[in-house]
Amino acid sequence: MLELILETLIKAAIIVGLPLGSIPIILVVERRGAGFMQKRLGPNRVGPFGLMQPLADVFKFLFKEEVEPSHVRPFFYTIAPLIALVVAVMPLAVIPVAAPFDFNGKTIFPEVFHTDLGIFFAFAVSALGSYGILVAGWASNNKFSMLGALRACAQMVSYELSLTTAIVAMIFLYGSNDIHSIVAEQTGYWFGFLPKWGFFVQPVAAVLFLVGIFAESNRLPFDLAEGESELVAGYHIEYSSIKFAIFFMAEYVHMLVLSGLFIILFFGGYSLLPGMELLVGDSALMLTIMQVLSFIIKISLMVWFFVWVRWTLPRFRYDQLMMLGWERLLPLGIFNLIITVLVVHFRNH
């Protein structure tokens, strides 16, 4: 019993601490990346290459005055950032970074909470993500934040539909909801060189999912919730100091979680990158290390992709956004699902 609690605590500390710890790195990548793409320098004064910039930001947030305007609804105003962060962090518990391995004669699952329904659980919890934003917008009692929250909420639920069709198609294809068996399905190669990733089987579902995660995490080109030119800052307009920082963190964690799910479903999760087998050899320890490394590399590429898209595409207009969600992606997802099911069925019979 004690051992179990200890094991869970250690895993929780690592798996929650790692993403939270990587947020400063993502921030640097994002700001320096923006500079790189726009042919300017970006923050480069604090520390070597501006690497200490996030630390400076954290201290700035901590020492800023925490303004609580007189018109807000205090209780909900205070808990809104916490809701956002907790809901964003929770799905991390089911995302594994490596295959189950033996340690001291015991099989250890490299995720905090092992269940057969990992994808399903993560998806259900991240569906609660709109509450943080909705509560923040309403509690701020400000027209801009209210509109931002409403927009964010309507947008998130709209794209969740096409996301669900993609997930159903993938689960049907793999015939399982267990993350480890989904990854096992994707290990290996076709014709000796092409990895058996879900992306090559279901490119349509992959695109749907990719668009969906941009909309769910409120990132450009879908960051209508905070469209500066119309809503100033959207739902967190009345937030300052560390509360604002918490919203920021929640957004990045949400992004990481969704990228993780995307990688698991379409890019083989922690399965080795091509060529890594040569490094592994027979050692089981090396295998686990390489799997973690592959996962981290894939996640980093996804984060870079997020940054890349953010500074490349302009923001959508709201009616275009809703049209894209309801009239393009949703029917695409439904037909993709029907075709997938029929093809799989007739291949079997």
Binding site: F61, L62, F63, K64, E65, E66, V67, P69, S70, H71, T78, P81, N141, N142, K143, F144, V232, I237, E238, S241, I242, K243, I246
Partner: peptide, 23 residues
């Protein structure tokens, strides 16, 4: 959040507590 509450500077002005509507 508690740390920030303690560390943060405080200066209460009526204007600051108002709703933000672009000034």
């Amino acid at each position: 959040m508690t740390i920030s509450k303690v560390l943060g500077f405080k200066r209460t002005l009526v204007r600051k507590m108002d709703i933000y509507e672009s000034g």
